[in-house]
Amino acid sequence: MAPIHPEIDLCHLLEQMQLIRAYEEAIVTGSAAGKFPGTCTSVGQEAAAVGVVNALSGDDLILTNHRSAGHLLARGADPGRLLAEVMGRSSGYCKGRSGSLHISVKELGVVLTSTIVGAELSLAPGVALAQNMLERAGIVVCFFGDGAACEGSFHESLNLAALWNLPILYVCENNQWQAFVHRREAMSRDHVADWAASYGIPARTVDGNDVTAVLAAAQAAAGKVRESRRPYLLETYTYRTRGHFEPDDQAYIDQAERQSWLNRDPIALCRDRLVADGCLSPGKQTEIADRVAQRIATAMAFAESSPFPAADELTRDVYA
C-alpha cells in the first residue's frame, strides 16, 4: 500500500465513497420514478474523486464539470442542498437554476462549474492567474474527462499554464467513455497523460479505482504544484459503470469490459483491504452503512419538502 498522510482515516474515505454511491443511486431511482430530471452519475469512479479531493487543502479551488457529485460530496457539500438543486428547488446550491449538471459551491471552493465539455479547462488558467496575482496560496484543481481532453481547450489550457507558470493540478478522469463513444474511437492515444509531456508538463497515470493509490498520487502531485507553482497532470484511470445520462440502457457497451471493471469496484476494493488489515469490523461496517442511509434519507426529505423557485426568479441574477 502506498504511504499516505497519517491523519487520513481510510474508513472515512470509504464512508465518503459509500455516501457518493448512495446519493447517486437515490437519484437514479428517483429519476426512474419521474421525481428528478436525468443526471450524469459517477458510479464506479468514486475513488478517483475521493482520493484527489482528500489530498487538497481548504484554500485550494476546484473546477469540475457535469459529473461532479463525487467532487462535491468529498469536499463536504450537503447532500440535501445537492438533491434540492438536482430537483430544481430554491434551497439548492444554485437556487434550482443549475440542476445537476453545473453545480458550483463557492463557499466550498468549487467554482465556475460548467457543463460545456472543456469549459473547466479554458477557465482554469484565469482562476490560477487570479490566485497568483492576488497572492492567494491555494492551488487550482481542474477535473475533466478524457472527452474534454479532445477539445481544443485542453491543449490551449496546458500550453498557457506551462507558459505562464500557473499553479494548476489538472486531473483527467479517464473513465473510458465520452458519452456514447468509447475513448478508443476518439483518442489517438490511450492516455491523456502522454499529451502533457509535449507541453513540458509532468504527468502521471494512476489506478483510479484504488483510493489509496489515488490519494498518494494526488498528495504528491498537489505538493509539486504547491512548491513549484507550475502545472502538473494526474490521470486517474477508471471506468463509468452506469450510462452517460440517466436513463441509459447501455446497449452500446462491451459487457466484458464493463464486467472486468465491476470486478474492481472501488468501494469493494477499499472495504476488502480494510477488513484484511483488521481495520473494519462488521459492526463498524454496519455503523457506516446506517449513517450513510440516514444522511440520504434526511437529504431526500429536505429536498422534497423544499419549494420550487418563485416566478420572479426567472430574471433575477442575470446581471450584477
Partner: peptide
C-alpha cells in the same frame, strides 16, 4: 423569452 438564460428548474423552464 426574457433576456435571461434558461433555468433547469421545471417551473422556470416552462415560464420562459
Amino acid at each position: 423569452g426574457p433576456d435571461a438564460p434558461v433555468a433547469a428548474s421545471y417551473p422556470l423552464e416552462q415560464a420562459f
